[in-house]
Amino acid sequence: MKERNRGDYGSMLRRAFISKGVDMAEKLEVEEKPASEDKTGSMYKWEEGMDWNPVERIILERRSVRKYRDKQVPEALIRRLLEMARFAPSAGNSQSWRFIVIRDKKTIESMEKYAQLRAKFFMFWLNWRTSPLGRLAWLYSQIGIRVLRNDLHPIPHGALAAMAEGTLKLFQGAPTVILILEDRRGAAKPELDCGICGQNIVLAAHSLGLGTCWVGLVELLKYGIKWRRKLKISYPYRLVEGIAVGYPVGNPDGMVERELHEIEWYENSQWKTVL
């Protein structure tokens, strides 16, 4: 039988074994790449109850930062963070993300101003506690919540109200903002890929002494044609999230308490719930 081009000896053998239903791994002597001592994977060996390793500590101590110092972050450091994003896993390796970095104080401020204006607009129609429309706003809100059940979940609803009042700022005065856009043609779930690459940025940033905050409320910018034009957002890209980056005021990072989540666990033909 004539082998095709890529049919080296290994793949011929593999095919032969597969056809005979033999477990390859057992029969083939796989040449293993020697474990290198300097890779984190072999640096920390798990033992039950052991202390956190540095990676775990960064994950657990990361807190969203909402007060930044005026000092700008060096360009190279932001480039380094973006490098982390490039190596995030993505469905089908489709890397369906695009980044926009804004480091201009005036632009960031005018984005914040626009977001506040938009929040005020939405709250006029939807916030029955403050709107001059009163009960009518309550009715609109009930309809709106049913349509936009995630965007108008009680917490973002409250955040919009706070933003309209001016107590919550879009980027909390961060000197650098990274906007994440999804390529809508990406494999499977491009929005999820954006979340994963963003978290790479965030974790790396905290390991380097920076503070970050995810900003889902950048959603508000989408309503402005001006911003879509200015940020050069057009098909196939869609603005998904923003990440505020800067040097934090004080020491906001630290481990905290959070809720446990029930986990269903199937093993030995039995279900159990673990917390």
Binding site: R63, S64, R66, P154, I155, H157, G158, A162, G250, N251, P252, D253, G254, M255, V256, E257, R258
Partner: peptide, 13 residues
């Protein structure tokens, strides 16, 4: 309502 979203960021700070 709503104000506190029980994030514990105050505790960390």
């Amino acid at each position: 309502f709503p104000n506190c979203m029980s994030c514990n960021d105050c505790a960390a700070m």
